[in-house]
Design a protein around this nucleic acid. Structure first.
Lengths: 229, 229
DNA sequence: CAGAAATTTGACCAGTTGGAAAAAACGCTA
DNA sequence: TAGCGTTTTTTCCAACTGGTCAAATTTCTG
């Protein structure tokens, strides 16, 4: 059996892991470390969300972050480290709205505000959405396990809640899993396919208002469908 | 004004553009050329749809196609050439269902079968869907112009048809653009986010049946929504 | 301000990448 | 089957890639 794994923690405490820092208790992060790491993560989010893991290069990220490659590598010793950090941060943000769904609240207003929150995420965190989408397209090699455990558990839970709602007759009886998928799909579309959305809407309708339009449209679609009563 | 552009046609006629072939009239494609090009495009679709343009390498494609890199380059002299071919082929497939929407047919059955066709596309051409998604995430540098012209025109046209349907009262009055977006999003989700869908559905429900389930769910959602009548 | 620690830089490296060139092998047809 | 065009392989290259290392510089702390 191998010794205790500290590998994943190497970035913690401080960046440049001097011999001293490795053997003694980790020093607290300096101001510069916090700042630069933030700048790097910000730049990396830009690049990774566009190009995916393989397509992105350290040079690109370093340039976007306004520093030299070796300097960047001083803070994050490997490319994958940056990516992994972004992935966990992103997953937190991505899951938050789903977590908020409450079994106690009114089904209709719960669903309505879930859709709202997800649309707002597409508006406010489009790069995180694209980062996730990119990872999915690649088959999610770095997150499958999270999807199969944490995500699945969470969705199972929320699906159960929705089944409860359906029991009460407040919403129609249908497949809660595909319902959740369709909310994900429709809302994230506005971040992931932004180019397409704006191209199709054209200059006049493609402005910031598109998110509000989308939210209103989706609320109506999900509640009432297309058939007149 | 520049002379006639033959640049885009270089691949045409034959692969290895010998001096003779360039100056004389193009020779017809040989059997081997057709076959190998097919094999290459098939392999390239695999790789590009996973890794995106930058992330994919000629070596990967060559290996997947079972040939050496220089041999592959004999058929497609540059990486971008392969990608562009795949893009146009994909766009054709991708647009086909939308093109089929007919103003004459019954609105409800037109919409229903549009959703069906799009779900079937996700089932039968998932790689093309992912290729497109990948291009979108990168900001669509190689297709924006097509989106802003051909696609926009087509969508404008179909949106007009839908507005007509709404006039007749057969379907509810709503935003046809966002309606189209939501159909795209929900259906393509099953190709683009396949890993996630299967992870969440689990082994038991994640089989081939998921496409049929999705189709049924979406038809109901789009027609009736979630509120009980 | 001195010294130590933290940060940045420049030079460097081995492996990969897209692609060129030429020679070798193949296959069709006269 | 000879010959010519087609296909494949071998060799090669310059640019790029992720990453290392020691030296130089800057920043913090007493």
């Amino acid at each position: 059996m191998p010794p205790i794994k500290v590998k994943m923690l190497e970035t913690e405490g401080g960046a440049g892991a001097t011999k001293a820092a490795r053997t003694k208790r980790p020093r607290p992060q300096t101001r510069i470390q916090r700042e630069k790491q933030e700048v790097i993560l910000e730049a990396a989010l830009d690049v990774f969300s566009r190009e995916g893991f393989r397509g992105a290069t350290i040079d690109q990220i370093a340039e976007a972050a306004g520093m030299s490659k070796p300097n960047l590598l001083y803070y994050f010793p490997r490319k994958e480290e940056i990516y992994k950090r972004l992935m966990t941060e992103m997953l937190d943000i991505w899951l938050a709205p789903l977590r908020e769904i409450d079994s106690v609240g009114d089904p209709v207003s719960e669903l309505r505000s879930y859709i709202r929150r997800k649309i707002e995420m597409s508006r406010d965190y489009p790069r995180q959405s694209r980062l996730f989408a990119n990872e999915m397209l690649q088959g999610g090699p770095r997150v499958v396990d999270v999807l199969e455990t944490d995500l699945k558990t969470l969705v199972d839970d929320k699906a159960q809640i929705m089944l409860g709602w359906m029991e009460t007759g407040k919403i129609v009886r249908t497949d809660p899993y595909h319902l959740i998928f369709s909310i994900w799909a429709t809302t994230q579309h506005y971040a992931d396919f932004d180019v397409q959305v704006r191209a199709v809407l054209g200059k006049d309708r493609g402005g910031e208002g598109r998110f509000e339009d989308a939210a209103r449209f989706l609320e109506n679609l999900f509640l009432y469908g297309l058939l007149p009563k």
